[in-house]
């Protein structure tokens, strides 16, 4: 470390220790850190702070914003649409999140071993992941039409009474929107689990087989515990993705009919850019942020731990 005076010391993770060293900071390195940080500050951190500030105002975007204190937050409690959107978001989290995790894990287990055809099966499940959610939504919108594939199949099976306008019925709209979202998400979660499953030491299973452990015991006693880090990643991905879900709902129902498929994200968007209630929309955004906060924090704690591993 004493050999070079001008060049900053290379960081050997363990040997250096936390002792402070005198050195001149290279301007190149300073720029390497500060330029990206400034870009992100301009587009993310500064707007985020403004978003929090705006949530305490009433603003139509044209006349000056008026401070209203916690007025927007108080209004949330008496806003039935907010209640609906909140419950739908929770339902979305449970159904979309839960089913994509179970489906993804199930498919990863089914398609883990390399055997004939597995490459094709994996590709089939993964293909929707590369489509945009808008294209996905339009594909499924055609499927859900009164004369679309779902009703055609039901008719062919003699289940005419089950035929339905899936997207325009307030009782089915939300579930009809979850299906395409799942169709696209399961392949993604499968890839995460496949990577996790491949990382498990095969000798664990060999030892268990020798000890006479059943398939189920191997799954609960080896596979699941070994997957714990992937599970926490999947959990974060699911929660963050659920709270961000917007495109597929927006493209299929705009949150309707009668707010029956409204999520906090779609409600926030329409409040901001259609009702032009920018302060109230910002309060909705803050609620979404607060809901995501726990996950963001745990994700960061893990990242912090791994950052120097």
């Amino acid at each position: 470390m004493t050999a070079t005076l001008t060049a900053p010391a290379v960081a050997p993770p363990s040997a250096a220790g936390p002792r402070r060293r005198r050195r001149t900071l290279s301007p190149t390195l300073l720029a390497f850190v500060l330029v990206p940080l400034l870009v992100e500050t301009l587009w993310v951190f500064w707007p985020a702070l403004q978003g929090v500030y705006l949530s305490f105002t009433s603003w139509d975007g044209v006349s000056p914003a008026v401070m209203v204190g916690f007025g927007n937050y108080a209004e949330l409690f008496s806003d039935p649409t907010f209640g609906r959107a909140f419950l739908d978001t929770v339902l979305w989290l449970v159904l979309f999140g839960g089913l994509s995790a179970l489906g993804g894990l199930g498919m990863a287990l089914l398609l883990l071993k390399d055997r004939r055809g597995v490459g094709f099966y994996r590709a089939a499940l993964f293909t929707p992941v590369v489509f945009s959610l808008v294209a996905t939504a339009l594909i499924w919108q055609a499927i859900y039409q009164p004369d679309g594939l779902v009703n055609t199949i039901l008719g062919a099976l003699g289940l005419d009474s089950w035929q339905h306008s899936w997207l325009s019925d307030a009782n089915t709209a939300l579930y009809a929107v979850i299906v395409p979202a799942l169709w696209r998400q399961i392949g993604y979660i499968m890839v995460l689990y496949l990577a996790g499953l491949k990382g498990i030491d095969p000798t664990l299973y060999e030892a268990a087989t020798v000890d006479g452990a059943s398939r189920w015991q191997q799954f609960t006693k080896i596979t699941l515990p070994q997957l714990s880090s992937v599970n926490s990643v999947v959990l974060s991905v699911i929660i963050i993705d659920s709270l961000r879900s917007f495109d597929v709902v927006w493209a299929l129902t705009r949150g309707g009919p009668y707010h029956s498929s409204e999520l906090l994200s779609t409600y926030m968007y329409s409040t901001a850019f259609q009702s032009l209630r920018l302060g109230y929309a910002s309060a909705l955004a803050v609620v979404i942020f607060v809901l995501a906060f726990g996950v963001i924090l745990t994700y960061l704690v893990r990242a912090f731990r791994d950052a120097d591993a």
């Binding site: 992100e40 587009w43 993310v44 951190f45 500064w46 707007p47 985020a48 403004q50 978003g51 929090v52 705006l54 963050i240 709270l243 961000r244 906090l264 994200s265 926030m268 968007y269 901001a272 850019f273 920018l278 929309a281 910002s282 909705l284 955004a285 803050v286 979404i288 942020f289 995501a292 996950v295 963001i296 994700y299 960061l300």
Partner: peptide
């Protein structure tokens, strides 16, 4: 910054 829900950034 990347983990923030984008909604909080839309209006600003």
């Amino acid at each position: 910054g990347n983990l923030l829900p984008p909604q909080i950034l839309l209006v600003p």
